[in-house]
Design a protein around this nucleic acid. Structure first.
Lengths: 111, 111
DNA sequence: GTTAAATGCATAAGATTCTTATGTAATATT
DNA sequence: AATATTACATAAGAATCTTATGCATTTAAC
């Protein structure tokens, strides 16, 4: 089972920030695979969503990029900026707070 | 503090289904007030989001409506249909499952 | 007793963030 | 040699919001 997409909507940036917080540097395709692995395929980040989001986060100054050549193929490694680190903390705590609110509102039983 | 709106996106139908599951019948404006109250103003459903969503849920057969006149003013009471009841269960468990996944993915500490 | 706020519905334009489709090219696998 | 995977990218369209606006009634405040 994977989720109806409207739930994931709005959490993609937070997921990227968390991945980069844990992993120092990652490239886009690697993020999609890591998330599939960590969620047992429940969350599958599409490239059409991922790449534009990475570009916009770069424009916002949340992440920095460095290109690396693997053979003839380019790979773009992203890292958290200082602003990105504080944004990560902010987004994570906002999401936790939101979930706690939803838990009360909807009587959710979580594990 | 209230949440950045992209988080709420995708949960509005679930919230409406839950409210109607608990309350037998409610009208739109009442829902906005109830949610504000239950979430200490953290979640504020806007009318621009609510009314179109109610109309689409009615078209989907999830809720039924009956108009009532309070003085000269109309009030539209909504109730869950049978399909709405099962949709409510489905949406709630989907959200709970999603949250559990996010909890693992993002190391969330919930209350 | 008139003005302002709250109640209660509604729609429309624009923003945001996805999905799906498509494209390109290199590398690895069968 | 053909196919799958890796790795980037963009664009059209869908979905779901926000913000703005509108109308009318009823209640509260000055």
């Amino acid at each position: 089972m994977n989720y109806s997409s409207e739930l994931i909507k709005g959490t993609l940036k937070t997921i990227i920030l968390k991945l980069l917080s844990d992993n120092n540097k990652m490239y886009g395709y690697e993020m999609t695979q890591k998330v599939r692995e960590l969620t047992a395929d429940k969350i599958q980040i599409t490239e059409g969503a991922l790449y534009p989001t990475l570009h916009s986060m770069e424009n916002e100054g949340l992440i920095t990029v460095e290109s690396e050549f693997i053979g003839k193929r380019v790979r773009k490694y992203y890292s958290l900026s200082v602003a990105g680190k504080s944004k990560k903390a902010e987004k994570i705590s906002e999401l936790a707070d939101f979930i706690n609110t939803m838990k009360v509102l909807l009587d959710l039983r979580l594990q």
